[in-house]
Design a protein around this nucleic acid. Structure first.
Length: 361
DNA sequence: AAAGCGGGGAC
DNA sequence: GTCCCAGCTTT
């Protein structure tokens, strides 16, 4: 595909369509829980922006409500335990978001006296806050003239300016950031950024853009060229490997043996049933060996109690679950291994599909 | 620059 | 099945 720069004439580059978008926004603005009130609470904007990373509005809505119920302000979140924070986030995905937000809120509480900083330099230092989130908080909560370039903005601009290069490349993101800066109204940056999000989610959608309802067709170079469904261009994803996982649910005196995953990596710090990578007899033997090293001799029933296929963005877990009972021994005291009373299963943050296993047994 | 990191809804 | 979402961090 031919690319971009050559097609853009100078007068089109500077064409000023922001007022048209803002006019559309006036009547089509989505009512969302984090958009209530004329003055926007920086903490609420922050939480919503973190939750919305790579996550659709409808998936966030219940989590946001429940989160604000439990952690209504910065002090409440700063005081919470990591397990409780992860428990609130359980099921939303990308759990480093929760851990980073927790740590960053604690820093805001201790370093900034509980006030979210209002400069790009300071806010970018907070864990989990990158270019996009910094721009979103500064513009929406503080009215600063910052851009917030996310997936919606990349798609919208790729179409408006007929940019045929991979929108995920650093150079295209840089180019679009410059185009957005030239477009942003100094006094209504927050509205402009939110308008772009709503526009991207409702009109300039990925597959079949609703050009018949679009207020910006007069400005859209992709539409003019009949290329609106071919843009934007995205990098194709590679094959995702499958891992066979053997899980053994070990019960003893109405308790389950659970293990907390390492504090880095996939599903960090969340709880799981004893498991290993591997399947069949070898998988079962490996789990028994693992538990033996923890001081427990366990017998495992040969018949599996179920299977789960769990798809991540970069790998697939093909899990087979077995039931086990303690024959002898005592669990070696370690913080990451615990006996969990069965009725307390809602109190720990479960690692992905492991939460479902509680229902199977 | 590329890979790691979740889960779900739309098609 | 595929696509991709109000991305950030680490390598």
């Amino acid at each position: 595909m031919k690319c971009n720069h050559d097609h853009i004439k100078p007068e089109e580059k500077t064409e000023h369509w922001a007022p048209v978008l803002l006019q559309w926004f006036r009547t089509h603005r989505r009512e969302l829980p984090w958009r209530c009130g004329s003055r926007r609470d920086p903490y609420k904007v922050w939480v919503s922006e973190i939750m919305l990373q790579q996550t659709k509005v409808e998936a966030v809505r219940p989590y946001y409500d429940s989160w604000m119920d439990r952690f209504p302000d910065i002090p409440a979140l700063a005081e919470a335990s990591q397990d409780e924070v992860l428990r609130q986030w359980q099921g939303l995905g990308y759990y480093s978001r929760a851990r980073n937000l927790h740590a960053a809120v604690q820093e805001v509480q201790s370093v900034y006296g509980g006030s979210v900083p209002d400069t790009k330099k300071e806010i970018l230092k907070l864990k989990g806050v990158g270019d996009y989130t910094a721009g979103a908080i500064l513009s929406i909560a503080y009215g600063k003239p910052e851009v917030a370039v996310d997936g919606n903005v990349l798609r919208v601009f790729a179409r408006l300016y007929r940019i045929g290069d991979n929108i995920l490349s650093a150079s295209v993101k840089q180019q679009i950031t410059a185009l957005a800066k030239a477009q942003i109204p100094a006094d209504r940056a927050g509205d402009f950024n939110e308008a772009l999000m709503d526009f991207g989610a409702m009109i300039c959608i990925p597959k079949h853009p609703r050009c018949e309802a679009c207020p910006l067709t007069a400005y859209c170079q992709a539409r003019r060229a009949g290329m609106e469904t071919e843009l934007p261009v995205r990098l194709t994803k590679k094959h995702v490997p499958t891992e066979n996982i053997t899980v053994v649910a070990v019960t003893d005196a109405a308790r389950w043996l659970i293990h907390r995953r390492p504090d880095k990596g996939l599903l960090a710090s969340m709880w799981e049933f004893p498991n290993v990578i591997g399947s069949g007899e070898a998988g079962i033997r490996a789990v028994r060996d693992l538990l033996q090293r923890m001081g427990l001799t366990v017998s495992v029933k040969a018949a599996p109690i179920g299977t789960i296929k769990h798809v991540f963005s970069h790998k697939i877990w093909q899990m087979t679950m077995y039931k086990g009972t303690v024959v002898s021994g005592k669990l070696i005291e370690k913080e990451e291994w615990q006996w969990l009373p069965c009725q307390a299963y809602t109190t720990v943050p479960w690692a992905g599909p492991h939460g479902k296993i509680t229902a199977m047994i």
